[in-house]
């Protein structure tokens, strides 16, 4: 019963959000200049040729009729066909989603593995003697200041010029050997992680600093509890909430496609697929891609809400509605 109270409003909100995203992507795609007919026929097409193609894809119908048809098909699980290959786009997304998922998870794991402890350490060290806290700040500030494509380009050059064991591009799917797969995933993961490490470091450091000034921590100090226990029982538990938020947000961002990393390292994820389909005005792909990314994002947020409720039941209740 409590689960229903927890879920029902969230599901409603999620449905509204998804509808909004669907409407937005559909309308904006129709608003942008140029269409698939322009792209595929190239410059040297007659108006009649373009019209024929537009008609074939039903793009001559009123926009809300098109939207209605698309939505109706969606509800029946039909995401439409790509105009380029005339094949269902959902198949392509199902094939690519695990790759994007893997890249996102690896990036997140690496970033959390480094960013979290550094952030906690930096937060705890802040205000203490010496400049230990500053190192954390400096790392955080530095990591967030280099665009991933610069790091990626440097990796590509270094690792293609000298054979150092890792591969630039030449993606190998996971089911063809874990190590072979990892060899192609390490570099993109690392180039994406640099920013993410800084992000988690800063978030954690900040959360720790905030929690440390809370009354119950001061009380615990006053009680004379051991610092290690204070950190474990009070600080980390309470600092976890903003970290969970940022993790969910950033994970959603990665799932929406790390286009640049995919392009640089030839990773067949969803990002480049959506991006280049937008360039080609292959509407069904962009629509499905945006919708699926939004769906994952919304779901993740719901999972994060669950996590809040588990960490601190009060917050779980307070956060509903945002």
């Amino acid at each position: 019963m409590r689960l229903i109270y927890f879920l029902a409003p969230r599901l409603l909100i999620a449905a509204i959000t998804m509808f909004g995203v669907a409407l937005l992507v559909f309308l904006s795609l129709r608003l942008i200049p140029g269409g698939y007919a322009d792209i595929v026929l190239g410059p040297f097409a007659t108006g009649a040729a373009r019209d024929l193609l537009i008609q074939r894809y039903g793009l001559d119908e009123p926009i809300f009729v098109q939207f209605g048809k698309w939505l109706w098909a969606l509800l029946q699980g039909d995401f439409g066909n790509s105009m380029v290959t005339n094949k269902p786009v959902i198949d392509e997304f199902l094939r690519r989603a695990p790759v994007t998922g893997e890249l996102a998870i690896l990036t997140l794991l690496l970033a959390l593995a480094i960013g979290l402890p550094l952030g906690v350490w930096s937060g705890l060290a802040e205000g203490g003697a010496g400049g230990k806290g500053r190192l954390g700040r400096l790392v955080g500030a530095l990591g967030a200041s280099v665009p991933d494509f610069v790091i990626g380009s440097a990796f590509i050059f270094i690792f293609s010029k000298w054979s150092l064991g890792l591969k630039v591009g030449g993606f190998v799917p996971l089911d063809q050997g874990l190590w072979d797969n990892l060899k192609t995933m390490i570099l993109p993961t690392v180039s994406l992680s640099v920013f993410a490490i800084a992000l988690f470091l800063r978030t954690t450091r900040d959360a720790v600093l905030r929690v440390m000034t809370d009354g119950h921590i001061l009380a615990a100090v006053a009680r004379g509890q051991r610092p290690r226990d204070i950190v474990r029982h009070h600080v980390l538990r309470n600092a976890a909430i903003p970290v969970v938020t940022v993790t969910a947000t950033y994970f959603g961002f990665l799932l929406g496609g790390a286009v640049i990393a995919e392009v640089l390292f030839s990773i067949p994820g969803v990002g480049y697929y959506i991006f280049s389909s937008l360039e080609e005005r292959d509407y069904a792909v962009v629509q499905a891609g945006v919708l699926l990314a939004a769906f994952v994002f919304v779901s993740l947020n719901m999972v994060a809400d669950f996590a809040y409720a588990l960490i601190d039941p009060r917050i779980g209740a307070a956060r509903s509605g945002t």
Partner: peptide, 18 residues
């Protein structure tokens, strides 16, 4: 026929023999 849109990535693929 891998599709490699990025120029530097295509050079890298030639260099490493892919």
């Amino acid at each position: 026929v891998p599709i490699i849109p990025d120029e530097a990535a295509r050079v890298a693929a030639l260099r490493d023999g892919r």
